[in-house]
Deep mutational scan, measured.
Amino acid sequence: SSGGSSILDRAVIEHNLLSASKLYNNITFEELGALLEIPAAKAEKIASQMITEGRMNGFIDQIDGIVHFETR
């Protein structure tokens, strides 16, 4: 797709992000992006959206560029 990722790509990214949230206590956007094979800024945006929508527990430290995952 030309304008970003398809629905399937997005679903795969979100699935992998949720998997990462179970493996890590926290991770930088750079590391997360590398893990998900997407730019760091996109990793931040998707993580932020999932947390806001209540689909993933955690919070974002924008100063240090880190996602902190919280286990249920």
Score class of each variant (00 low, 15 high):
residue 24 Y to R: 06
residue 23 L to R: 10
residue 31 E to H: 08
residue 31 E to I: 07
residue 20 A to V: 15
residue 57 N to D: 10
residue 63 I to L: 11
residue 65 G to P: 05
residue 27 I to T: 03
residue 46 I to G: 00
residue 61 D to S: 10
residue 60 I to S: 01
residue 18 L to C: 10
residue 31 E to F: 07
residue 38 I to K: 00
residue 52 T to V: 12
residue 41 A to D: 13
residue 52 T to E: 14
residue 8 L to E: 09
residue 6 S to Q: 11
residue 64 D to L: 15
residue 11 A to M: 13
residue 22 K to V: 08
residue 53 E to P: 00
residue 24 Y to E: 03
residue 14 E to V: 06
residue 31 E to L: 10
residue 30 E to V: 12
residue 54 G to H: 06
residue 41 A to E: 14
residue 33 G to E: 05
residue 42 K to L: 15
residue 61 D to V: 08
residue 34 A to W: 08
residue 33 G to M: 03
residue 30 E to C: 07
residue 12 V to G: 08
residue 26 N to H: 15
residue 1 S to R: 10
residue 37 E to L: 08
residue 15 H to A: 14
residue 59 F to K: 08
residue 71 T to A: 09
residue 8 L to G: 10
residue 28 T to F: 03
residue 60 I to D: 00
residue 20 A to W: 10
residue 22 K to A: 08
residue 60 I to Q: 01
residue 55 R to G: 03
residue 3 G to H: 12
residue 17 L to S: 01
residue 32 L to F: 03
residue 21 S to A: 11
residue 67 V to D: 01
residue 45 K to H: 11
residue 15 H to V: 08
residue 5 S to G: 13
residue 55 R to W: 05
residue 4 G to Y: 01
residue 46 I to R: 00
residue 42 K to A: 15
residue 44 E to H: 12
residue 61 D to L: 07
residue 56 M to H: 01
residue 19 S to A: 15
residue 16 N to L: 15
residue 1 S to H: 11
residue 14 E to G: 03
residue 23 L to P: 02
residue 9 D to P: 09
residue 27 I to W: 05
residue 70 E to L: 09
residue 7 I to M: 13
residue 45 K to A: 15
residue 64 D to P: 06
residue 4 G to C: 12
residue 49 Q to D: 14
residue 50 M to R: 01
residue 53 E to F: 02
residue 60 I to Y: 03
residue 7 I to Y: 14
residue 28 T to K: 05
residue 9 D to Y: 03
residue 43 A to C: 07
residue 42 K to Y: 15
residue 69 F to V: 03
residue 18 L to D: 04
residue 28 T to E: 02
residue 33 G to K: 03
residue 46 I to F: 07
residue 52 T to S: 13
residue 68 H to G: 04
residue 49 Q to M: 07
residue 56 M to I: 15
residue 35 L to W: 07
residue 72 R to A: 14
residue 53 E to M: 06
residue 50 M to L: 11
residue 55 R to P: 01
residue 5 S to C: 12
residue 58 G to C: 03
residue 68 H to I: 09
residue 63 I to N: 10
residue 72 R to G: 13
residue 55 R to M: 07
residue 30 E to I: 13
residue 23 L to H: 11
residue 52 T to C: 12
residue 24 Y to L: 10
residue 34 A to P: 02
residue 3 G to D: 13
residue 40 A to M: 07
residue 64 D to E: 15
residue 27 I to P: 02
residue 50 M to N: 00
residue 55 R to T: 06
residue 35 L to S: 03
residue 37 E to A: 12
residue 64 D to Q: 15
residue 7 I to K: 10
residue 18 L to H: 06
residue 21 S to P: 02
residue 44 E to P: 01
residue 32 L to Y: 00
residue 35 L to M: 08
residue 45 K to E: 15
residue 12 V to R: 11
residue 57 N to A: 13
residue 39 P to I: 04
residue 16 N to C: 12
residue 23 L to T: 08
residue 4 G to A: 12
residue 62 Q to I: 14
residue 37 E to W: 06
residue 49 Q to G: 05
residue 62 Q to N: 11
residue 44 E to C: 13
residue 68 H to V: 08
residue 64 D to W: 11
residue 38 I to Y: 02
residue 32 L to Q: 00
residue 1 S to G: 13
residue 6 S to W: 01
residue 69 F to L: 04
residue 61 D to T: 07
residue 61 D to A: 06
residue 16 N to V: 09
residue 70 E to I: 09
residue 9 D to S: 04
residue 26 N to K: 15
residue 30 E to R: 07
residue 41 A to R: 09
residue 44 E to A: 15
residue 1 S to V: 11
residue 3 G to S: 11
residue 46 I to A: 04
residue 63 I to F: 08
residue 14 E to S: 03
residue 55 R to L: 08
residue 60 I to R: 00
residue 16 N to Y: 10
residue 30 E to H: 07
residue 66 I to N: 05
residue 16 N to A: 13
residue 19 S to W: 12
residue 25 N to I: 12
residue 5 S to Q: 14
residue 13 I to Y: 06
residue 43 A to N: 00
residue 19 S to R: 15
residue 54 G to T: 02
residue 56 M to F: 10
residue 43 A to V: 12
residue 8 L to W: 07
residue 37 E to Y: 06
residue 50 M to H: 01
residue 60 I to V: 09
residue 59 F to C: 11
residue 69 F to E: 01
residue 35 L to R: 04
residue 53 E to H: 06
residue 39 P to E: 08
residue 48 S to D: 08
residue 6 S to D: 15
residue 21 S to W: 02
residue 43 A to I: 13
residue 63 I to A: 13
residue 13 I to W: 06
residue 25 N to H: 13
residue 33 G to Q: 02
residue 61 D to M: 07
residue 13 I to N: 04
residue 20 A to F: 14
residue 25 N to F: 09
residue 51 I to F: 08
residue 72 R to H: 13
residue 13 I to M: 07
residue 65 G to V: 03
residue 39 P to N: 08
residue 29 F to K: 02
residue 32 L to S: 00
residue 9 D to K: 03
residue 62 Q to P: 14
residue 35 L to N: 02
residue 71 T to D: 14
residue 40 A to N: 04
residue 23 L to A: 08
residue 17 L to Y: 02
residue 51 I to L: 07
residue 7 I to W: 12
residue 37 E to V: 06
residue 20 A to Q: 06
residue 47 A to V: 14
residue 45 K to N: 08
residue 67 V to Q: 01
residue 9 D to L: 04
residue 51 I to T: 01
residue 28 T to Y: 03
residue 47 A to R: 00
residue 39 P to C: 06
residue 63 I to T: 10
residue 57 N to E: 10
residue 60 I to L: 05
residue 4 G to D: 13
residue 46 I to Y: 08
residue 3 G to V: 11
residue 23 L to I: 14
residue 32 L to V: 02
residue 52 T to R: 14
residue 32 L to T: 00
residue 36 L to T: 01
residue 36 L to F: 05
residue 40 A to E: 04
residue 53 E to V: 05
residue 62 Q to C: 09
residue 17 L to R: 03
residue 11 A to T: 10
residue 5 S to A: 13
residue 18 L to V: 09
residue 37 E to I: 05
residue 62 Q to E: 10
residue 22 K to D: 07
residue 2 S to N: 12
residue 53 E to Q: 09
residue 40 A to G: 05
residue 48 S to K: 12
residue 21 S to G: 07
residue 33 G to C: 04
residue 67 V to C: 03
residue 18 L to W: 04
residue 35 L to F: 09
residue 45 K to I: 13
residue 66 I to L: 08
residue 24 Y to S: 04
residue 48 S to R: 14
residue 46 I to C: 04
residue 15 H to D: 12
residue 46 I to T: 04
residue 69 F to N: 02
residue 67 V to L: 15
residue 26 N to W: 15
residue 65 G to F: 05
residue 19 S to N: 14
residue 27 I to H: 01
residue 17 L to M: 14
residue 47 A to G: 02
residue 55 R to D: 02
residue 43 A to H: 00
residue 72 R to W: 10
residue 68 H to Y: 15
residue 26 N to R: 10
residue 25 N to L: 11
residue 10 R to L: 13
residue 62 Q to K: 14
residue 41 A to P: 06
residue 49 Q to C: 07
residue 19 S to V: 15
residue 30 E to S: 08
residue 22 K to E: 09
residue 70 E to A: 07
residue 63 I to R: 10
residue 23 L to C: 14
residue 45 K to T: 10
residue 40 A to Y: 04
residue 69 F to Y: 02
residue 55 R to I: 07
residue 40 A to Q: 05
residue 61 D to K: 05
residue 40 A to S: 07
residue 33 G to I: 03
residue 66 I to P: 01
residue 18 L to A: 06
residue 69 F to K: 01
residue 40 A to L: 05
residue 50 M to W: 03
residue 38 I to A: 02
residue 16 N to D: 07
residue 4 G to R: 08
residue 35 L to V: 06
residue 56 M to P: 00
residue 5 S to I: 12
residue 67 V to Y: 03
residue 14 E to L: 05
residue 55 R to V: 06
residue 70 E to P: 07
residue 39 P to H: 06
residue 39 P to S: 12
residue 27 I to C: 07
residue 67 V to R: 01
residue 10 R to M: 15
residue 6 S to A: 13
residue 21 S to L: 08
residue 67 V to A: 03
residue 20 A to C: 09
residue 3 G to M: 10
residue 66 I to C: 07
residue 3 G to P: 11
residue 71 T to Q: 12
residue 37 E to S: 14
residue 26 N to Q: 15
residue 66 I to G: 04
residue 71 T to G: 10
residue 27 I to K: 04
residue 57 N to M: 11
residue 61 D to Y: 06
residue 16 N to H: 10
residue 21 S to M: 07
residue 33 G to T: 03
residue 66 I to Y: 07
residue 15 H to R: 14
residue 18 L to F: 05
residue 1 S to F: 01
residue 42 K to W: 15
residue 24 Y to H: 08
residue 18 L to Y: 05
residue 65 G to C: 05
residue 34 A to C: 10
residue 36 L to I: 03
residue 65 G to M: 07
residue 59 F to Q: 07
